[in-house]
Write a protein that binds this DNA or RNA. Sequence first.
RNA 1: AGCGAGGUAGGGUAGUCAGGAUAUCCCGACGGGCUCAUAACCCGUAGAUCGAUGGUUCAAAUCCAUCCCUCGCUACCA
Length: 662
Amino acid sequence: MNPPPLLVTCGLPYTNGPCHLGHLRTYVPADAYVRYMRRAGEEVVFVCGSDNHGTPIVVSAEEAGVSPRALSERYHTHFDETFKRMEVIFDRFGMTDDPATHHRTKEIVSRLTKNGYIYKQIVHQAYCTKCKRFLPDRYVEGVCPHCGTPARGDECDQGCGRHLEPGEIKDPVCKVCGTKAEFRDQEHYFFKLSEFKEFLLTYLETLRGTSNARNYAIGWIKDELHDWCITRTLEWGVKFPGRDDLVVYVWVDAPIGYIAFTEEWAKKAGKDWKRYWCNENRVTHFIGGDIIYHHSIFWPALLQAAGYGVPHAIVASGMVKVDDHKFSKSRGYVVWTNDDYLDKGLPADYLRYYLLAYTSHTKELNFSWKVFSERINNEVVNIFGNFVYRTLFFAHKEFNGVPSCPVDPAITAEIEKSLETVDGYMREYEFKGAVDAIMALAAFGNTYIQTQGPWKLIKTDREASAQVVRNCIQIAHAVTLLIQPVMPAKAQECWAMLGYTDSVADHPLGDATRPVPETSINAPSPLFAKMDDDQVKELDALLQKRVAQANKKMETIPMVTFEEFQKLDIRTGKVLSAEPVPKSNKLLKLQVDIGGEIRQIVAGMQQFYKPEELAGRDVVVVTNLAPAKIFGVESNGMILAAGDSASLLVPLRPVEPGSRIR
RNA sequence: AGCGAGGUAGGGUAGUCAGGAUAUCCCGACGGGCUCAUAACCCGUAGAUCGAUGGUUCAAAUCCAUCCCUCGCUACCA
């Protein structure tokens, strides 16, 4: 029996911002993989779509003054067009807000309910009376119920790292307006994820793809697995079946989008989508390393619970850094696909090559214009481009085409060896290894033509010279076929220069060893343009300018009104005692007299002051700062200090503790 | 804090599971040769306390222990 067909998906871009280099780190390798597997004879379907739901989109849409749907459509079109410009070609690029995803999500959730994996529970959910809405996930901040450190709505991000279910967080505050939120009882639905521990452990052992996806998930599951609340109180999203007031959590309908997009494609193509998703399958998810949890834990459990087939492979890419800085839109360390790259007239193929050849797929990629241009010029232009050009130039000049003689078996063997090497790497998702092997074949060609010197041979032995040229053309032909998944447009150009009139994409990789027909060859033109230093400087300057502007913007703190300033109660205080907070290396616990009242305040100044030198000092304290638990210790105020070394602000002349600062 | 992934010349890597002698290869830098070509290729040079410390061993990048740093989970996110 034939293996099931390959279905490849990419993590869904979220429709609240434009496409950047980080996205491409996942999409370009996925596209190259799909192109390669197709040419290796596999039946492959490649689907993706935009992720439209969730609170961040609602908030962004409000800010932009449009509906969430309109905002989603705007970015959806943007991604669709940008991917096409980058030659990332999906069979279907859908939207999770389209009917197919709504329909499939409801069907799956109903199945989960029917199969007994969903239960109802009342949760106390944070509600902002000012914004008049429930505050999901990242829109609420407060204190972790487990360890007492400040935490976000869905996760104790600074403390114990535990996932928090809605309603668990203590002392919630609305992140949008800063108002103290109140808890309101709300009925929610939970998915029994905890029941899938054993299943997942067995499943993950056989999961294919990159090891980071597997190891990360296994480590997580061995620890503990909580049930997941899969509903949110929101208008925008897929309605939970039978409840008009609840939508499903975006991480439910987003991956279900993969199925829905397959359905949409299948309907149009007259195929059966069930072949791809039910029973044995070869679903391969290309994702960014930041969403491994959802894809290798939550998603397989959900599919299993609903009676679908589970994913065959998860390929998780490493993150992107820019100029050795963490990727950050707000700090300016970002490369926008359109504005910074394509609109500057740079070929998509260069960036595709760079992304695939830079480093192993799972490792961090550090982008810089300098390295980018270096690698393009030295590898793509000088090694590959030059080899093809010098070969065809000479063939045209001296033989007016492909010389008529058989290809040397040693050359065919060398090509076969490359085919095998590349194939091994591609099937292990080692794209760098594959690209290196292709370039090694081009380098072999250069060495071969150099050592044989057909330009010398032709003076004494025309036949021998013809043989060398014949062999070189065969190598160029093989390299072109192999590089096509990486650089589709350039490969096609090169293909035409070799005298072909059809599409290189229609040729199986095995054709690499098939002799090139003895056609005439036109005068070749250089395939690639080098990136010159001025251009590189200009591109780099643009990036540096953006970083500088972002820094400036971050330094600019908005004005406050006098009334807002008046809200702060700043007083002098006298430190009565100080002691280190256990287990912390920076924190001191202080007892401060602020005039008739002793306050406990935690301050991060252990590395600057010894506890005994603080006792008895006059200090300046913000007394009406909201209380917080830091390392499990309650802190009721803030000691004011200046600069990185925490130089304490002190009254110049003696004052009574509790004197108001104005 | 925890859990994952990492740390090998300026950049990128191989080697680590199965310990073995001058630590691999590619790019870059420098010098020379050659020249059909947008130049490649050849020869040579410099550049690495293999994250740190301790241990096991005749022998450690590799095994063990402890620690440090970076990244992810953890605004903005693939």
